[in-house]
């Protein structure tokens, strides 16, 4: 998915991105699927379907590639929202890494706090208050209300 950053507008290369990435995916799937046993028709092996699917994706990708390259006025993909992408990602990753170590409440607090900076007008104090409120509400809803079996603070 590396070349997806290269969205230059309507150059040939840019128009080939969607078909190209999909083709790569199809080839990767086919590559792995070829290692799985195919079996026979009445005893189909685990490889039969993945191989079919890999070929099918590749064929569809080629079709898309051709259609896109011949398309006269292809819609330009919108610019990537780097700020949103980064802070949302980091927020979720923090949640994932902390929930089994620090417990639900701290991880909710940090996930909300970090992800709020995806908004470029976020102010630290607002974020702090908001994250505390969110963690408290989350605690009420998930632990008190729904009694989900997740520790609030790990082993405390």
């Amino acid at each position: 998915m590396a070349n997806i950053e290269d969205h230059g507008g309507q150059s040939k290369a840019a128009r080939a991105v969607s078909g190209g990435v999909l083709l790569a995916a199809g080839l990767v799937i086919s590559f792995f699927a070829w290692g799985y046993p195919t079996g026979s028709l009445n005893q189909m092996g685990p490889g039969f379907f993945p191989q079919t699917i890999g070929i099918l994706i590749s064929l569809l990708a080629v079709t898309i590639l051709i259609v896109d390259l011949r398309h006269p006025a292809l819609e330009r993909p919108s610019a990537i929202q780097w700020r949103g992408l980064c802070f949302v990602s980091v927020g979720i990753i923090i949640f994932a890494l902390l929930v089994e170590r620090a417990g639900l409440v701290p991880s909710m607090f940090l996930a909300v706090g970090v992800s709020m900076f995806a908004d470029d007008q976020a102010k630290p104090l607002t974020v702090l208050i908001y994250a505390i409120t969110a963690a408290a509400l989350g605690w009420l809803l998930f632990l008190v209300g729904l009694e989900l079996p997740i520790p609030a603070f790990w082993r405390l």
């Binding site: 979720i92 949640f95 929930v99 969110a134 998930f142 989900l148 079996p149 997740i150």
Partner: peptide, 27 residues
């Protein structure tokens, strides 16, 4: 609103199979 949405997604997905991997996959 969106931080609360993210929060609910994270907790919902995690509690579904008690799986950290699932949370990362969601991302």
């Amino acid at each position: 609103l969106y931080p609360m949405i993210l929060l609910m997604i994270c907790v919902g997905v995690y509690s579904h199979r008690t799986s950290v991997t699932d949370v990362l996959l969601t991302l």
